[in-house]
Design a protein around this nucleic acid. Structure first.
Length: 269
DNA sequence: CTTGTCACCTGAGCGC
DNA sequence: TGCGCTCAGGTGACAA
């Protein structure tokens, strides 16, 4: 799945196929996603998709009467296919369009979501989210001020959606390595100068991954079926025990917040 | 309030 | 081949 770059790449992938298209039918084959898929989603039938937007890792298909919210969880992916294309295992939701195209949500683990949002409102899930990392709202000052007096490990801090959205496990590992910051360092004890470097690396790492078309991992498939090519550029994630690209020492692995954390004990302090 | 842990669910990979 | 175990990109809901 999807960290923010994969979600954004999915948005870019599906948007040209479904923008300005009329939704003819919403088929919910399995409503048992993270939350039960509400029947309200069918309100979108007969409506035109005006735009496809993204907030954090949520995708929104916006229509005049409301928005379909999609989240890919850990294992979700979206494909745009002709409705005649045979279903695969775990194809839970189809959003059919007048031109015969279907936006098909597949999600083996069902940690994803499909919800409905009334127009001119904000879904409660999105009410308390931090800034988007790729906008000017996300700054070193924000990280610095928000982290004061926090004992939490900096890696968990930057993965907290209330602090900044869209920094998942892979890119948290990568950004901290590039910034030379030890992932277990207390967030409140990091200087403004170091947050400046970290902020820049988070932005660059995410932006670069989007450019590369998203990381290729197990079940992420771009909407055109081609995998992304960013995985080969990962410097620490998935490289535990291998040599650090900077100093050649063995990369270490620990667990923080139950997530695998890979870092260089020499380069990251 | 903060911080840490659990839960949700399927599938892949590994050791035996 | 099969079984049991661990791990996997997220994140809301708790408990302490």
């Amino acid at each position: 799945m999807p960290e923010l770059p994969e979600v954004e790449v999915s948005r870019l992938g599906i948007s040209p196929h479904i923008t300005d298209q009329k939704i003819s039918k919403v088929i919910i084959r399995n409503p048992n996603l993270r939350w039960p898929v509400p029947d309200d989603v069918k309100s979108a039938e007969g409506q035109v998709v005006d735009s496809v937007s993204r907030r954090a890792k949520y995708l929104l298909l916006n229509t005049k009467v409301g928005s379909i919210i999609l989240h890919l969880g850990m294992s979700g992916n979206l494909r745009v296919v002709d409705k005649s294309v045979p279903l695969l295992k775990h194809d839970h939701i189809d959003i059919e369009f007048g031109n015969g195209a279907v936006l098909r949500l597949n999600d083996a683990r069902r940690f994803g979501a499909c919800l409905w949002q009334e127009p001119d409102t904000e879904h409660e899930l999105m009410g308390k989210l931090g800034p988007e990392p790729l906008t000017e709202d996300f700054t070193d000052i924000h990280l610095f001020e928000k982290s004061r007096n926090k004992q939490v490990a900096v890696k968990n801090f930057i993965m907290d959606n209330h602090v900044v959205v869209g920094v998942g496990n892979i890119y948290a590992n990568e950004s901290l390595f590039k910034a030379g910051i030890h992932p277990n360092r207390a967030a409140g004890k990091i200087s403004k100068k170091r947050y400046e470097v970290l902020t820049q690396h988070i932005k660059e790492t995410l932006a670069n991954a989007i450019e590369q078309g998203g990381t290729t991992l197990k079940d992420f498939i771009q909407t055109d079926g081609k995998p992304g090519y960013f995985a080969q550029e990962l410097l620490v994630y998935g490289r535990s025990g291998e040599a650090c690209v900077k100093c050649d020492q063995k990369l270490k692995e620990i667990r923080l917040g139950q997530r695998s954390t890979v870092f260089c004990g020499h380069c990251q302090r």
